[in-house]
């Protein structure tokens, strides 16, 4: 009862309130209240994530698992960040309320928190994603093989887009006049055609497919047909 039925009812109720609000403006207040809770819980999820990280790493350290020293580094940076961020170390006072320290702004590099953001978090996240540039190049070399008509279509399109997105496309095809029936082979026009006709229709079909899938899943959840989402306990 407490573990299965009530959660199921809560799920259905919150889902139905949202759907109802779509059709009747009277219930918008209810749906906004529920969405407000949803947003707060999304915030709590960040806390939960941090808590999980803490638990995992503490366990790693106490059990002296391999790599526990790295776990200690993770914990130390977590702790340090938390302390400076909760206390707003070095925050710039709020011009309207300079007497309330915690009302200050800690997003500039003047404060410890802003400094860590600017010179630790930001370069690290950015570089992590920049690594993908290397991997994409390696994949282009290893995996892009023209073996059949499908892969030739894929490769050919990629080629055209790669050329047309940079000055090379214009350089190669600018000699073709712009207003003839064959001018569609100019790189920029070819790119427009690929993007607006082929890619748009392909993605549109995918979107329609996903929309149907999402709608079906949502309905199954709300109507209580699919209970797997709540089975964790």
């Amino acid at each position: 009862m407490l573990q299965r039925t009530i959660p199921m009812l809560i799920l259905s109720a919150s889902g139905l309130i949202l759907i109802l609000a779509y059709f009747s403006p009277v219930t918008v207040v209810w749906s906004d209240t529920v969405v407000g809770w949803f947003n707060i819980l999304a915030g709590v999820a960040f806390v939960l994530g941090a808590g999980n990280l803490l638990a995992v790493n503490l366990e790693k350290i106490s059990a002296r698992r391999p790599g526990w020293a790295y776990a200690a580094i993770t914990l130390a940076s977590f702790g340090a960040m938390l302390v400076v961020g909760l206390g707003k170390w070095g925050a710039v006072p709020n011009p309207s309320f300079p007497d309330v320290h915690l009302a200050g702004d800690q997003d500039s590099t003047q404060s410890a928190y802003g400094w860590v953001y600017e010179y630790v978090l930001s370069p690290l996240t950015a570089t992590m994603f920049a690594m993908l540039a290397f991997y994409v190049a390696s994949a282009a070399f290893r995996a892009f093989r023209a073996k059949n008509i499908e892969s030739i279509l894929l490769l050919g399109t990629a080629f055209i887009i790669l050329l047309a997105q940079v000055a090379a496309g214009a350089f190669l095809t600018n000699w073709i006049p712009e207003d003839r029936w064959y001018s569609f082979v100019r790189a920029e026009q070819l790119k427009e055609i690929i993007l607006n006709v082929f890619q748009t229709s392909g993605m549109r079909a995918i979107l329609i497919g996903i929309a149907l899938g999402t709608a079906a899943t949502s309905l199954r959840l709300i109507l209580g047909i699919d209970r797997s989402a709540l089975s964790k306990g």
Partner: peptide, 23 residues
């Protein structure tokens, strides 16, 4: 950023071509 982009794109094209030739 479009300048380095040009060379990077040409490199990717070259890599695809080389990969296929090698295949």
């Amino acid at each position: 950023r479009m300048g380095p982009q040009l060379v990077a794109h040409l490199l990717i094209i070259a890599l695809i071509v080389l990969g296929n030739i090698s295949m």
